[in-house]
């Protein structure tokens, strides 16, 4: 009986990092999108920047999902 602690440990680490990173990114994306022009003090830059950031976060999440599908397929 040999328990593969290395594999278990890496599953633990990878799952933890992936989950926290993805949820964090997605949350940042949602917050970026929820910034309304009226609450942002009128200047367009303060709306555009969060918005661009949000889309960047969503793009990273989309990449992660694609990688997940790739892992399932192969």
């Amino acid at each position: 009986m040999k328990i593969d602690w290395v594999a278990l440990g890496s599953v633990f680490g990878v799952s933890l990092v992936a989950t926290v990173a993805l949820v964090g990114l997605f949350t940042l994306g949602i917050i970026g999108l929820s910034k309304q022009p009226s609450t942002a003090g009128g200047s367009t830059a303060s709306v555009t920047l969060p918005r661009v950031g949000a889309y960047a976060c969503f793009a990273l999440c989309l990449a992660a999902v694609s990688f997940g599908i790739y892992l399932i397929v192969t």
Partner: peptide, 21 residues
């Protein structure tokens, strides 16, 4: 969202890193 993302990460990580959960 957090729960489902965690489940998806764990399932994919475990089946690809050789420790099936």
């Amino acid at each position: 969202f957090a729960a489902q993302t965690s489940a998806a990460s764990v399932i994919l990580a475990s089946s690809n890193l050789g420790f099936s959960l």
